[in-house]
């Protein structure tokens, strides 16, 4: 067990926090997953996808309070993914074998998400914005930075300039969305 980062630290999206978790629990995850009929490549693939899912749930606010350690949460994602994988590979496995509670609330948050058409279009048009807009919108909507922090880090004159820039960027993005 390591000293785990806090949710707040994870919320900044700093990839180092996630790679630290990845390294810390890698061998115990592999040990756990080898009990099932999985190749090492599949195990690593599943483990990586589990970390990515943890990231997604933290960043989207689906995981807003931890009722267990991050390790326990991460391993329940992993279990779910192993279960999905084996089910897909049509190997006989029941929830019981994986000590898997099918009716947990959390589980709904472990499914792969798909983007809506509008989200896909937003992602595509976002890429065509200027660098400064991309940076500003990423800070605000992805990293959850306050306008004040953005002003300091990105060196805007004052908060009002940040606000004005932000609404200008959003306006540009929305105009691109009109077919």
């Amino acid at each position: 067990m390591i000293i785990e980062p806090t949710l707040e630290q994870l919320r900044t999206g700093d990839s180092e926090a996630y790679t630290k978790i990845y390294e810390a629990y890698r061998s115990s995850f592999i040990g756990f997953a080898r009990k099932y009929e999985l190749s090492d490549d599949d195990i690593l693939d599943i483990y990586q996808d589990s970390i990515v899912k943890l990231y997604e749930n933290v960043m989207s606010g689906k995981l807003s309070t931890l009722t267990s350690s991050i390790k326990t949460y991460l391993f329940s994602i992993g279990k779910f993914k192993i279960y999905e994988h084996l089910r897909y590979a049509k190997k006989q496995v029941t929830g019981d074998e994986l000590d898997f509670k099918v009716e947990t609330v959390e589980q709904a948050h472990f499914e792969e998400t798909t983007l809506s058409e509008r989200q896909i279009a937003l992602r595509r048009h976002f890429e065509t914005l200027g660098e400064r807009c991309k940076m500003l919108l990423t800070c605000f909507y992805l990293k959850g930075m306050s306008l004040k922090d953005i002003q300091e880090v990105e060196q805007y004159e004052n908060i009002n300039t940040v606000k004005a820039a932000k609404s200008r960027c959003m306006k540009q993005l929305k105009e691109k969305m009109i077919p």
Partner: peptide
């Protein structure tokens, strides 16, 4: 709603980045 959709789109994009970081780390 648009702002939330943008957030989802940005998360999706950065998931792909994190995945490649982990693959490289491996």
């Amino acid at each position: 709603e648009v702002e939330k959709d943008l957030q989802a789109a940005l998360i999706d994009q950065s998931k792909a980045d994190l995945k490649s970081t982990l693959v490289n780390l491996e």
